[in-house]
């Protein structure tokens, strides 16, 4: 069974056909990259899958279940995590606490008013391990440099132990020489944990390096789908370079 299916997803913003009938499938532990010029509907697609937006028509299935009408926080509980282009992080918390928020939420402890020591020690250990694996220092979030803010954003999604993670431009704003390192850290972890991922990315080298399969979007539609080799396709190149 496929992990994720979308069926003719459509989302229009007035006259703009942001996503215009996208159907895709994703298998367990597969890394799918979505590429395309600005405004081709990549982020809208991620928003539709994560539940941040409701489609005008079409369906989203996760593990065979129709989740089209399910609100985002419940999709998270089902195993869909996501990161954001502009990191959505807790400025006044520490990196450790940031991950704890996710871990408590995932283990249904968020509502707890008091503390039972063993459970919290376990959560803390888990959070510290993840911070170490991803090379995120233990400090106030507001004091982190940009690259680590992006990484923390991803880490908060990963600490939910998702089956699928949606990465919306994980390297945006990160300097060229740091990109590879960031992606290696993230993808290494994802591969290791056998998490499936949909990666929206601009950097074609990164796409070529880290994905199993590629989808090229143009004006809200899937233009081409296949292995990395489609990046060398003439039409695809023209569209991407025209960007």
């Amino acid at each position: 069974m496929d992990l994720l299916n979308t069926e003719a997803l459509k989302k229009y913003f007035g006259e703009v056909h942001a996503v215009d009938g996208v159907s895709l499938t994703l298998r367990d532990a597969e890394l799918l990259s979505v590429v395309g010029p600005n405004g081709s509907g990549k982020t809208t697609l991620v928003n539709l899958i994560s539940g941040a937006l409701k489609p005008d028509s079409g369906k989203v299935y996760f593990e065979g279940r129709d989740i089209t009408g399910i609100p985002p926080h419940k999709r998270v509980k089902m195993g869909i995590g996501r990161s954001f282009q502009i990191p959505a992080i807790y400025e006044n918390l520490t990196t450790l606490d940031s991950l704890l928020v996710s871990i408590f939420s995932n283990t249904n402890l968020s509502h707890v008013f008091y503390k039972t020591k063993d459970k919290f020690e376990k959560a803390k250990e888990e959070a510290i391990n993840l911070l170490e694996t991803l090379n995120i220092p233990l400090k106030l979030v507001g004091e982190l440099p940009h690259g680590q803010r992006k990484l923390l954003d991803v880490a908060m999604a990963l600490s939910l132990k998702p089956k699928l993670i949606l990465l919306d431009e994980p390297t945006a704003g990160i300097s060229l020489d740091e990109r590879d390192e960031v992606m290696q850290t993230i993808v290494g972890f994802i591969r290791n944990q056998k998490i499936a991922a949909i990666i929206v990315e601009h950097d074609m080298d990164i796409v070529a390096e880290y994905s199993d399969r590629v989808i090229v979007m143009h004006e809200g539609r899937v233009l081409k789908e296949g292995g990395k080799e489609i990046l060398d396709d003439g039409e695809v190149r023209r569209i991407l370079i025209g960007d």
Binding site: H73, I89, L93, V101, S102, S105, M156, L160
Partner: peptide, 17 residues
């Protein structure tokens, strides 16, 4: 802690489930 998370980023808190 969860309240503070919501205060700092409602968006992220929602996507933390």
């Amino acid at each position: 802690l969860t309240l503070q998370a919501i205060r700092d980023s409602e968006l992220r808190a929602r996507f933390a489930g």
